[in-house]
Structure formats: structure tokens, C-alpha cells
């Protein structure tokens, strides 16, 4: 079975680039708080989304609309309208995280394909089974906390598809539940859709160092010539006792290309590339690279080593939790 390559698109141009580069499916969001990449200048108007779906279908690709933030009390209408509009545009699936929104989508649009977002952090067969029985979800995007062996074990016990991340930025292992950015900025990544909102990010040269700040807090400082620091608290440098450095998480990005055969053997249906906030140049290069890798795997050829480190946010890569070498 050929693995499905699910690719990011923050703009219509990135969507076209992804499909031209070989994406089987593209995920994207509306330009409001309903999706977890609610950044300035990014995302799709309703008209752009409808055009994008038409373009994708003409090119035998799917569009999955991420409506994967958690509705605010008293503000549900923004999220239900997004689901209604996605359904009316003949999208191939919606990616949801909130239980109430999943329930609404299942009741209101029974023909709409539902995927559970990574934001829901469904990390075991019981939780996934609940989503499947209650809302008829067809696919779950697994959180980035599981080893390949654990993914295989989950797939043996469930009847729905699984999708896993293969490349891109990494979150701390509490997706949908992380409040670090909220603490510094006041806005919630999980409800407003912007982790480390750009309006509260500042980079400044100070004494030859480059200092990054979030919400006024200095979160990292690097020397000239070193890779620029992340603007997120989870990858900031701090002092904790005698230790000084990356307390929560190293500033590295996921690259699990070498694990494609193992993930396929573990029963995974789809591989997801992170990066809706990135440019179409990133999208095109990464998608082309991974499509080549998937085609090689399907043909029984070896997968060439990745050449994408220069495109990663921290300029360093890891296979993340898929192989927990720290255990």
C-alpha cells in the first residue's frame, strides 16, 4: 500500500506548489482563529479555499481543512460556521480537535470525513476508539510522543487510519495542552491559533549577540554566527539550578525519512509534513523530497538520505520520539 503524503499550505501559492511537487493531500485553514496557524498574512479566505479545492481535485489531490483550535465559550459560531463552509465546499475532510465540534460535525454533516487533529492528543487505542465510536472519525493524527512500536500496537487495536508527522517543527509533547505561549503572551495557541504570536516576538542585536524576546521576556541569546534562536518558550534557554541551556526542548526539527519503511510496517496510512507557516519554497522542496522517498519505498528502492537540514528551523534534525534513544 502506498503511503499518503499530507502536505502543508499556508497560502494558495503554497498549495499549488505542494500539489505540483507531488502532494497526495494538502492541509490548510481559514484565515481566522479556527486553525492553529493563525498568523498575519497566512491562510485562506472562503473564496480562496473553494478555488483551492477545485484546483486540487482537478489534479487528483485532496484538501483537508484544519479547524483544529478549541472554541471559546460563547464564541462557538465561528467554529461551527467554519465546519459548515468546509462541508459546503466539498472538502475531502476536516481536521478537528474539540469534542463538541466533532459532535456538531458528525450530527450536522454525516457525510463529511472527520480526522482527529494532533491537537486532541489522542495517544492510545481507547481514546481513538472513543472518537471512532462516538463521531465516526476515519483518521487520527497521532501526537508526537509515540515510538514506532507503540504506533504499531495502536494500529493493531483500532479500525481507523493513522497519520503521523514525518518532517518539520516539533512541539513539546503536550499538543493542545501547552500553555507556555499563553503564559508569556496572553493569547492561547489552542484557542486563538497562534503559538508565539509574531506581534509579541522581537529579535534584537545586543552587544554582538542576537537576543529573542517573547511578550517582553528574553528567551534566548546566541553569539554571532550561531543559528538564530527560536521565538518559542519551549525552545528557549534558561537557568535551572546549575544548568543553563534548553530546559524544555532542544531547538531541533523532526526528520523521520529514514523511518518510512518502519512506519509503513507499523500500519500507518499517511505521513504529514509540518509547516503551514513556511514559504512556498520550503513546501516545494520538502514535498518533492518526500514524494521521491515515498516513491522509492513503494518501488522497493532504498530511501536517499535527507538533504533538508538547511530548511529546518533550528538547522538541526532528530527522529524525535519515534526512537526514544534517551530510554
Amino acid at each position: 500500500m502506498t503511503l499518503e503524503l499530507v502536505c502543508p499550505a499556508g497560502t494558495p501559492a503554497a498549495l499549488r506548489a505542494a500539489i505540483e511537487a507531488g502532494a497526495h493531500a494538502v492541509y490548510c485553514g481559514f484565515n481566522d482563529e479556527t486553525n492553529a496557524r493563525n498568523f498575519p498574512g497566512l491562510n485562506f479566505s472562503r473564496a480562496e479555499m473553494a478555488d483551492a479545492i477545485g484546483y486540487a481535485h482537478r489534479h487528483d489531490a485532496k484538501v483537508l481543512i484544519a479547524i483544529n483550535t478549541f472554541p471559546r465559550a460563547g464564541g462557538l459560531e465561528l467554529w461551527t460556521r467554519a465546519v459548515d463552509d468546509a462541508a459546503s465546499m466539498q472538502t475531502d475532510a476536516v481536521i478537528l480537535a474539540d469534542l463538541g465540534l466533532l459532535d456538531y460535525a458528525a450530527r450536522t454533516h454525516p457525510a463529511l470525513r472527520l480526522h482527529v487533529s494532533v491537537q486532541a492528543a489522542a495517544a492510545n487505542a481507547d481514546a481513538i476508539g472513543f472518537y471512532a465510536r462516538s463521531f465516526g472519525v476515519r483518521r487520527v493524527v497521532l501526537p508526537r510522543v509515540l515510538t514506532v512500536q507503540e504506533i504499531a500496537a495502536i494500529n493493531r487495536d483500532i479500525d481507523v487510519e493513522t497519520e503521523v508527522f514525518i518532517f518539520g517543527g516539533l512541539c513539546v509533547m503536550a499538543e493542545g495542552r501547552c500553555s507556555l505561549s499563553s503564559y508569556a503572551c496572553g493569547n492561547s495557541p489552542n484557542m486563538n491559533g497562534a503559538c508565539s504570536p509574531a506581534s509579541q516576538v522581537e529579535y534584537r542585536e545586543e552587544g554582538g549577540d542576537l537576543v529573542s524576546r517573547l511578550g517582553g521576556f528574553a528567551i534566548d541569546r546566541v553569539k554571532a554566527g550561531a543559528a538564530a534562536p527560536y521565538p518559542t518558550l519551549c525552545k528557549g534557554s534558561f537557568e535551572a539550578g546549575a544548568y543553563r541551556g534548553h530546559v524544555f526542548e532542544d531547538p531541533v526539527s523532526l526528520d523521520a525519512a529514514a523511518l518510512i519503511p518502519q512506519l509503513a510496517a507499523a500500519g500507518v496510512t499517511a505521513l504529514k509534513i509540518e509547516g503551514r507557516q513556511r514559504s512556498r519554497a520550503y513546501t516545494q522542496a520538502v514535498v518533492r523530497n518526500f514524494r521521491r522517498a515515498l516513491d522509492a519505498h513503494a518501488a522497493g528502492r532504498p530511501i536517499a538520505a535527507g538533504e533538508l537540514r538547511a530548511l529546518t528551523e533550528g538547522q538541526q534534525t532528530t527522529s524525535g520520539a519515534y526512537s526514544k534513544t534517551w530510554r
Partner: peptide, 11 residues
């Protein structure tokens, strides 16, 4: 669209 802005920034 020949370069990625984030990658240029981090490098």
C-alpha cells in the same frame, strides 16, 4: 520563491 525566509533567518 527561490529561498525560504525562515531558513534564511535561522541561518
Amino acid at each position: 520563491g527561490a529561498y525560504d525566509g525562515d531558513a534564511l533567518f535561522f541561518s
